[in-house]
Design a protein around this nucleic acid. Sequence first.
DNA 1: CTGAAAGCGCTAACAA
DNA 2: TTGTTAGCGCTTTCAG
Lengths: 337, 337
Amino acid sequence: MESSTLKDIAAKLNLSVATVSRAVNNKEYVKKETRERVMKALEEYNYVPNEVARSLKLKSTKTIAVILPDICEAFFGEIIKGIDEIVSPHGYTIIVSDTNENAENEKKYLEILQQKRIDALVFATVDLSGSNVKKYLSAFPVIFIDNIPEIAGIDSVTIDNAAASRMAVDYLIEAGHREIAVIIGSVKETTGYARREGYLEGLEAHDILVDEDLIQYGNYKEDDGFRCMEQLIQNRDVHPFTAVYVTSEKMTFGAIKALREYGLRMPEDISLVGFDVQDKAQLISPSITTIRQPEKMIGNRVGELLLRRLDGNAEQVSGQILLKPSLVEGQSVKRVN
Amino acid sequence: MESSTLKDIAAKLNLSVATVSRAVNNKEYVKKETRERVMKALEEYNYVPNEVARSLKLKSTKTIAVILPDICEAFFGEIIKGIDEIVSPHGYTIIVSDTNENAENEKKYLEILQQKRIDALVFATVDLSGSNVKKYLSAFPVIFIDNIPEIAGIDSVTIDNAAASRMAVDYLIEAGHREIAVIIGSVKETTGYARREGYLEGLEAHDILVDEDLIQYGNYKEDDGFRCMEQLIQNRDVHPFTAVYVTSEKMTFGAIKALREYGLRMPEDISLVGFDVQDKAQLISPSITTIRQPEKMIGNRVGELLLRRLDGNAEQVSGQILLKPSLVEGQSVKRVN
DNA sequence: CTGAAAGCGCTAACAA
DNA sequence: TTGTTAGCGCTTTCAG
């Protein structure tokens, strides 16, 4: 059946659109009897509110966009669920855009989303400089996750990445390792930078000298992990190590493949601590000791921050929320000595 | 900088909104010089088209919704990417809703999305009856994926599920197995039904008698896989089997866990063919022989079908597109005899 | 080639 | 308690 408009309903009932609108939206100043007549007509004539018209009038679409680099990563899925849990009871809908890790696509989506008049944005950017997003910061609230660009006064929700590295390094040292390599992301963005800091601090705290050649830089992809690990393995005579800490899931997988390819056993020959490794089926063996982020909680915090920004009761303290990571013990680290 | 409207621009330039609109939309009947003046002003006064107003006027939001049971499954992620690849060049944006495998949430989202006036829907439903979606079939084009409810004349894109089962069974028989158990979804929806048919056909074609007790029914979740496998194992004296075919990724994981728990080795004691198993890191060992769906291609076909429906050149033949699954060989099947 | 005017469906003063 | 009116920003006839 064709759906009808407020005007249609008003005509059928010999009322004004204003009155029907009030009834529909449960506003006051509608006689009980009138309200009932309207409610009945709504059913009868199949009224479906037009959210587009509503948005135009109210200048709010009740829509929150999430831009992320790869929708296939379960990590982001959990975050989205976490956000949704908080904002959907308030009538907000989430729309997701996948950039395929491509900064140009980010630019494209940013533009489209502004045209669609989203109310707010949650952004996991791959653009370290943040130059693309700058011009939108005044158009709608933006909350960064995962990767925080170097811009002053922005909102973000992440784990304490330095602390994460500290946990990994401390754990390895505790297990008796002292020659600890690391495969890390670009230090040009805050995430990579903080993870590196934590690693350095960890060594320092235990009076271990840093060997710069044991620090390899990748770009979070599996190939990078492979390449970095390969590099480490090849330099092994000059720069020996017994353990490696890899700072992303994909790089962890790549690193493990390199180990295999070079016939190195894990953990017998090399111990490994990964990052974000999600082994939902617990089928990987040996199971991997890994740093984990509280995805759901990240999503929840983002949702709460979002609501605060959208309420606009504007206590505009920029919120750099840091959550605690955890270390999940597997069998990929060998105790030595 | 505040963004401005067509009206603002028109005022600044002493033109009518109509003319400015024409210029902005690259329509004809605009003097070249005027067009240039407008284009320059657009920049200068920071004009951002209001897609909401446009949608209201044009009665099209250029938005395609995807409702799915769990956004964390990479399977759906790939499909979304596949759809996006096709439709985004035509100006459509995708919005994703995650129902957490809950039919009530499907209902909720269906309603919201209709209010938001989406142009079309791609639906991976968990509601076998399809009763929730029926009333929306006339409101916008709906294309079903993954799980096809029993409704006549709907569009869908799936793999040939019977053929998939045939492949799995033929493969096992070829490897010398004749006592083949199966863990399958509900046969009340077409997917489960077809997968069962394929299994039965496969046995029949090789003159193997069907033992109904070797057919276990679950609901696609990991727990179901575990429970079904457990059942099979416990009945093993009376209903022996050397191989099992499991028809979803989660159930496959559950089944493997049950095998482990009961001390059965794979493939030495029991051979297994899984479904949809995505071992992106190739870290599971032994690697699992599995049926795979061509996700990207499913997405592409959905996108194409969508465009055809949206163009509305209305060759309304309902499209039940069937794609070919494939079998990826791993090490979970043992050759016998 | 350009402008005036209507209207998409809704909300919110303001008046009655 | 209800109706009238204006207007959100845009597209599109139709007239000039």
